[in-house]
Every structure is written in C-alpha cells, then in structure tokens.
Simulated assay, not measured.
Amino acid sequence: MKKKLGLIGEKLPHSLSPKLHKEIFKNLDIQGDYSLIELKENQLEKFLTKDIYSYLGVNITIPYKIKSMDFVEVSKEAQEIGAINTILVKDGKLFGYNTDYFGFKRMLEENNIFVDGKDTFILGAGGGARAVIKYFLDRDVKSITIVVRNIQKAKIQLDSLIKNKENIEIIDFKTLEYGNYNGYIVVNCTPVGMYPNVENSPITKEVSKNFENSVDLIYNPLETKFLKFARENNKNSLNGMYMLIAQGVASEEIWNNINISKEVIEKIIKSFE
C-alpha cells in the first residue's frame, strides 16, 4: 500500500514538493503518494484533528508553521525555533519537527557560506525566519538584524527565541533603506518575489549592494528580483532550491525512520537542474 503524504498550506500552485518527493520515492524505492492540500485558515483545525489520520505525515508551509504547533507534540529543536514544517502521524498521535533548520544549514555549508562571527540580516519574522535565526544563534554570529514591517508584532512573535540576546536588533524596512547598514549575509524569509509576483523585491538594488551574500528561501522562480539585484551588483546570490531538497529529504527520514545519503541528495538536485 502506498504511503500517503502531503503538503498543507494556503496557496500551493507554485510548489515543487510533489516532484521532489516523487524523486525521493524513485531513488529509495518507496511506495508513496504526495499531494498538495490547500487549506483556508478556518479549515486547518479540522484537518489537523480529523483528516490527517489517514496520512503517514505532512509538510507545512506558509502561513501555518506556527499555528500547527497547537495540535502536535513538538520536538525539542522545533520548540526552540517556535515553528514546525513536518508532522509524523504515529500510534494515533501527531509529532511536529522542523527540518527547515537542517535544510538551511546544509544549503549554506554546501555553498561555502560560513556565518560564524559575521554580521547577519534576516528579512521577515515568520516560520522560515525562526529557523534561520536559530541557526545563526547556534553559529555564534556577531550580530543579527531582523527587518520587518511591524516591529512590535515581531518582538512579540520572536520573544521566546531572542529574549536576552544582546546581539539582535529588530528594525523596519525604511530604517534598513536609509540607515547605514551592511553585512556578510542577508536572507529573504518573506514570500515577496515568489511566483506569480515575480516583479517584487523586499529590498532595493541600492540596499542589496551592502551585502556580500544574498540568500532567498524562495525557489520559484529560481532567480527572484531580490537575487537578480545581488547578481547585478556582483555579489553572491543563492536561491532556496537546495534547502527545499534537503528539508524534504529530512522529512522523509522522519516519516520512514531511515537515513538518506548525501549521494542521494546530490542525485535529486541534478534532476532539478
């Protein structure tokens, strides 16, 4: 019997997750079915308390990575991050994990981006941003500047993660644009620039000049306007494709209780090129 898996989110037409998991099934000879599950906010509770029990597990994307925590037993690393992106259904219970952290870590390391002791910038304060903040804190960066639209809301949202951390500052986009800020890396954790709104960027080309590395968690399109600005400024740019694949592989490891080799990850990446 096929293992029933899927992705829950609000708007999913751009998602490459079914293709990714199909490749994983093929490479590991897993009998699986991975579907897209679009839910409005008022449908989330019903899915996570009733419908999910016909699945082995699901991934979670925007905007439910934080809300979904209320319905599951949360792993230690996901509890610290304050967001989940993977649920395992086992023995009639739901277990929540965060594989975004693992995916982001692998993506930077594979591309020789090492943030230890560096000034780092994060755009956004949602579930993806929380995994990035936790990784930066674990790498002992020099500073973290979080750029958001609503500073007060972000302070409340991120309180458990950033409380008592002296090297973290939260500013708004206008302050970033007109202040004297520069750093080793800026990571876009917002959906700005994602298909179909590909003409948008969270920062201007002028602001983009101030960062050695621009990393976008978005993978569709492969080059967002945010990354295009970095390339045109002769700076390093990196899209979210490797992270997507690495976090997807980590989810499959949890669902199937297996370890997947680096060689398999590289094979899957080649199939997306």
Results as ranks from 00 to 15, higher is better:
83 A>Y: 04
164 N>Y: 06
102 F>W: 15
91 D>R: 14
121 F>G: 04
97 Y>T: 05
31 Q>H: 12
107 M>V: 04
252 E>Q: 15
242 Y>A: 11
62 I>L: 15
264 V>Q: 03
210 N>E: 08
183 G>R: 07
246 A>T: 08
188 N>Q: 06
132 V>H: 01
141 V>F: 09
232 E>N: 15
183 G>H: 07
41 E>S: 14
48 L>W: 06
219 Y>Q: 03
96 G>Q: 06
7 L>T: 05
165 K>Y: 05
245 I>V: 15
197 N>M: 11
122 I>A: 01
52 I>V: 12
16 L>H: 11
236 N>C: 07
246 A>K: 09
229 F>S: 05
211 F>H: 06
191 P>C: 13
228 K>G: 03
184 Y>D: 05
212 E>W: 05
7 L>N: 05
168 I>W: 03
10 E>N: 15
134 K>Q: 10
206 E>Q: 10
90 K>R: 15
246 A>I: 13
60 I>F: 00
266 E>H: 12
18 P>L: 10
76 K>L: 11
68 S>P: 10
242 Y>K: 15
18 P>E: 03
269 I>D: 00
63 P>L: 11
189 C>L: 10
55 Y>V: 14
217 L>G: 02
11 K>G: 02
80 E>C: 02
22 K>V: 02
209 K>N: 12
156 I>E: 14
140 D>G: 09
123 L>G: 03
44 L>H: 00
15 S>P: 10
102 F>E: 15
46 K>Y: 10
138 D>E: 14
201 S>Y: 06
265 I>E: 12
94 L>T: 02
23 E>G: 01
17 S>I: 06
36 L>F: 10
57 G>N: 13
63 P>G: 11
78 A>C: 08
26 K>S: 14
7 L>S: 04
37 I>L: 13
38 E>M: 05
153 K>F: 12
124 G>W: 04
272 F>I: 02
159 D>K: 13
199 E>D: 14
68 S>A: 15
137 L>P: 01
198 V>Q: 09
31 Q>E: 15
110 E>K: 14
100 D>S: 07
167 N>W: 10
230 A>H: 07
176 L>H: 09
57 G>W: 13
111 N>S: 09
37 I>H: 02
112 N>I: 14
